Amino acid sequence: MHKVFVSGSMRIKNINHEVLKRIDNIINSKYQVLVGDADGVDSSIQSYLLQNKVSSVSVYCAGSQPRNNLGHWSTNNVQTIHSPGTRAFFTAKDLVMAEDCDYGLMIWDAKSTGTLSNTLELLKRKKSSLVFVNKEKLFVKVKEVKDLELLISYMSESSLVKADKKIGLLSSIEAFKNEQSSLF
């Protein structure tokens, strides 16, 4: 069974109908949904899955207790050495989700470094993601570094600077480019 990592910005509470169509395709294809436990996109997707009586869902959380598990689905508790509440603490579950999934579906506000980091992690693992850029109301398929560059073109300059500072975005892009050029 294919597994889809669904993730997104905590600031996004209302999921666009085009994204919900994609979620419906995932449900109808009988894929398993891997979703986090955060507020925002995670809890909104959980709510939609619950309304649609979807059972093939796994909720991932860092530590022992999920913040949200609306459907009381199976939980994958990721243990981490990082201090609770820190970025590294919550990122631990995202890294496991990136490893466990086959594909990603991201809903992004063109600012969230968490969602962008998840897209990077999938790319590192040679897995593709479909990113819905919420403010533009469009999807960007990220399969290689040029797709990632297109995706970040939707960021403001200040958001790009913050993302680079938080997650080393630009050095990650350079590393992908160097990796690709070394293949030839």
Rank of each mutant, 00 (worst) to 15 (best):
A110V: 12
S112Q: 12
T113W: 14
T113N: 09
T113A: 07
G114E: 00
G114D: 03
G114K: 01
T115F: 05
T115C: 09
L116R: 14
L116A: 03
L116D: 08
S117P: 06
S117I: 00
S117F: 01
N118R: 13
N118L: 14
L120A: 05
E121L: 13
E121F: 13
L122Y: 06
L122M: 14
L122D: 05
L122S: 08
L123K: 01
L123D: 01
K124F: 04
K124R: 08
R125F: 06
K126A: 02
K126G: 06
K126H: 10
K127L: 05
S128C: 04
S128W: 07
S128D: 15
S128H: 07
S128Q: 07
S129M: 06
S129A: 06
S129E: 15
S129R: 00
L130C: 10
L130A: 11
V131N: 02
V131E: 09
F132V: 04
F132M: 01
V133S: 07
V133G: 02
N134Y: 08
N134K: 09
K135M: 15
K135D: 05
E136N: 10
E136H: 13
E136D: 15
E136Q: 12
K137V: 04
K137F: 04
F139H: 10
F139P: 06
V140I: 12
V140G: 04
K141C: 11
K141L: 12
V142P: 13
V142S: 06
K143M: 08
K143D: 13
K143E: 14
K143H: 15
K143L: 15
E144H: 05
E144L: 01
E144K: 15
E144G: 02
V145G: 02
V145M: 03
K146V: 00
D147A: 05
L148Q: 04
E149Y: 03
E149R: 09
E149H: 09
L150A: 08
L151T: 01
I152S: 04
S153I: 05
Y154I: 08
Y154S: 02
Y154T: 03
Y154V: 10
Y154P: 03
M155W: 12
M155D: 02
M155G: 02
S156H: 08
S156Q: 11
S156D: 11
E157V: 10
E157Y: 13
S158T: 10
S159Y: 11
L160P: 01
L160A: 11
L160E: 03
L160W: 08
K162L: 14
K162G: 03
A163C: 11
D164P: 07
D164H: 04
D164I: 02
D164S: 08
K165G: 05
K165L: 11
K165P: 02
K166G: 07
K166N: 14
I167F: 06
G168I: 06
G168M: 04
L169N: 08
L170I: 11
L170S: 11
